[in-house]
Design a protein around this nucleic acid. Structure first.
Lengths: 252, 252
DNA sequence: CAGCATGATTGCGTATACTGCAACCTGTGT
DNA sequence: ACACAGGTTGCAGTATACGCAATCATGCTG
């Protein structure tokens, strides 16, 4: 195990909450002298912060880098006011995600107005085959990239509804291309339904997806599907601002 | 230079934008073999992501950890809807900050509705002696902690208006205690004025500060000071929700 | 106040992880 | 085919990371 690995594991562990030197040494099964030295290095550049009670916390540098990193995702900046308005109007958990490698990453999230919240968060990764956003992003890939992503996808079953074969997924992608949006009916998480639509850039390619996720106990699937026109409208607005021009045949 | 240092410097460098292996090796003056190995380690746990064009980007893990880290600042969650409403009403750049060591750290930011934006961001640190938020947080410290913070403060001049002596700062802190809010008249940045008020917790101590910053060209200092009552009202609301109970004498 | 327990910190010798050289691989352009 | 630019791999030397043992700091108890 490299020292860089250990330092990163310290950061990941502190994501669960503040910890003492001893806590960290035990949790990581690394000698506390080693942990102290790593913490010293991390603290020197503000990646961690030690408080008056000798507890270590994730530090300001992480917040700063995250903020800078997210700012590098231009579509996020453009989408933000539109998503805020969409969320203000519909009050549902709304995500903006991008395809990264063979997974999607949530790069923005607007919370539901309900007391029932979703456990997702900015920075979390999710599988492409079982999420509506994943389907939207993958359905628009050129063939070579589609192959690459499919090769990196395990089609792991998350729920009884998960699509678990390449063939099944390709058929679903064709459906998504046809209708211009995607649906995930308890395929990624039990009791959670989701719809998603693409945000396009100047090249016409989907560069991000906007998705709306709702627990079944809050809103049934049919009611969620009624949001598709609004979702398509907001993604079209964002796309337009991101340089997308509809082809002369109009959008799907 | 330790390998952990190098890895962290890679992350900091990528905060400025995506970079290739060669870019990073040159910028850090580290052999590219070493950089490649560090990038491998960072990528394995998603701290960085390499795209199809061999460019490295800050990765999802940073966003996730930042999100988790900020969630550990309970006052931020409580303050968020109140700050959003305050920002919707006044349209001025609004920050929530905490005292960390001898500096303040911005843990939330709401953007101005103007086209003139501030260069601050979540995660940035700022000096306590030249910021209104810093004055608010330090003015409420118990004597031993006040001494510790003052000992760690260089009173560096940022502008012609900066308070640069311990005595001057102590006098300003007394003023802040008296009036219950703080003011920074181009003390931290030229042409930027700022007001701040404390958010208190169950202990009655200031645990965070809400501040409003405005460039002089957008709003003059007098107009900014007119926002003090609204600022005190919102901080009182947040404080109440954070467990604060006014003392029988009422608040200052 | 002294003693004890707990947790944090430091110095030292050495094992191992890190490092850079040199060679190789890949993709692109002429 | 060759050249160039950028990325990647294997190897051996050594600088750095590591853990032991001792010390320091703090808080609690009798």
């Amino acid at each position: 195990m490299s020292s860089v690995d250990k330092a990163l594991r310290i950061l990941v562990h502190l994501g669960d909450g503040p910890a003492s030197l001893d806590d960290l040494a035990s949790a990581l099964e690394v000698h506390k002298t080693t942990v102290l030295r790593l913490l010293r290095t991390l603290a020197a550049d503000h990646f961690v912060h030690r408080d008056g009670a000798q507890r270590y916390h994730l530090g300001a540098r992480l917040f700063e880098l995250s903020s800078r990193g997210l700012d590098q995702h231009e579509v996020r900046t453009i989408a933000a006011p539109h998503l805020a308005a969409f969320n203000a109007e519909h009050g549902r958990t709304t995500h903006l995600s991008e395809l990264v490698g063979s997974e999607i990453v949530y790069i923005d999230k607007l919370e539901s107005h309900d007391h029932v919240r979703m456990a997702s968060r900015i920075g979390l990764r999710a599988p492409v085959h079982s999420t509506a956003a994943g389907k939207v992003l993958v359905s628009d890939l050129p063939p070579a990239e589609l192959e690459r992503v499919l090769a990196g996808t395990g089609f792991a079953r998350a729920t009884p509804n998960t699509i678990t074969t390449r063939e099944g997924y390709l058929a679903e992608l064709a459906r998504v291309r046809e209708q211009g949006w995607a649906h995930d009916a308890e395929e990624n998480e039990p009791s959670i339904n989701c719809i998603a639509a693409p945000v396009r850039g100047a090249s016409g390619r989907a560069v991000a997806a906007v998705s709306v996720s709702v627990p079944d106990i809050v809103m049934n699937d049919d009611a969620l599907l009624a949001l598709v026109p609004s979702l398509l409208a907001v993604t079209e607005r964002i796309s337009g601002e991101h340089g997308w021009r509809p082809t002369p045949r109009g959008h799907p």
